[in-house]
Amino acid sequence: MSALVLSESLGTTVRQPLMRATGVSKSYGDTIGCLDVSFTLHPGEVIGVVGESGSGKSTLLNVLSAQLPPDAGTVEYDLRHRGMSDIFRLSEPDRRRLMRTDWGIVHQNPRDGLRMDVSAGGNVGERLMAIGARHYGEIRAEGLDWLAKVELDASRVDDKPKTFSGGMQQRLQIARNLVTRPRLIFMDEPTGGLDVSVQARLLDLLRGLVRELGIAAIVVTHDLAVVRLLADRLMVMRHGRVVEEGLTDQVLDDPHHPYTQLLVSSVLQV
């Protein structure tokens, strides 16, 4: 029998990382937010971050999405034309531009991510106008297109989000973020506060969009069903630290860390 040719790294494709976090720590006085978190995210990859409230997952998301500077560690992102760059060393306007073009942020509370007094079409069109779109007809057409993609009725295009249900608001928020075709979206409990039936629809939609568009995502949630459906990989956080990580099904089906086992066994069949 011929000798095995061992190659631990798959030689065929060298993948450029999209984001790389190294030793990210953030605390609030004596309270630890997140501690020494490192990981690499590749284009099109979906990472789930799970843990109970207070585990530091939201702090981590805020740091990764440049909303909160870390006390230590770096977050690098593969900027178009510039390559891997420390996002906290960017000038503020550059960082803000990144956040509203190549990134998307889907907040748990749609009120934080939508303009409640602006029509659905205006909410979706805002990012387009922010990057210089000045043709009303085109902006509106794109808005309608995105409403359809997130399964919102075209007749609601001129209605304000405050007249929408929670699930519809969340879908509108997704459309508003995806309209500029970001390469990375951050999601904080995207199904939090929604009815179970509505959750399923939203998850399904997200799953479809993320796969179809090849968007990378970092999804923070305490709901293991969410990551089972959406995430390729999982990071389990506890007391600010990542205690276990790996392929989603691996971590959920064969958890090694005591805390992960507790988490998995506490949930009814996921």
Binding site: L6, S9, L10, R233
Partner: peptide
């Protein structure tokens, strides 16, 4: 390639 599943990266 021969991939060793125990040590491969998740994306692999």
């Amino acid at each position: 390639d021969i991939v060793e599943l125990g040590s491969a990266e998740p994306w692999q």
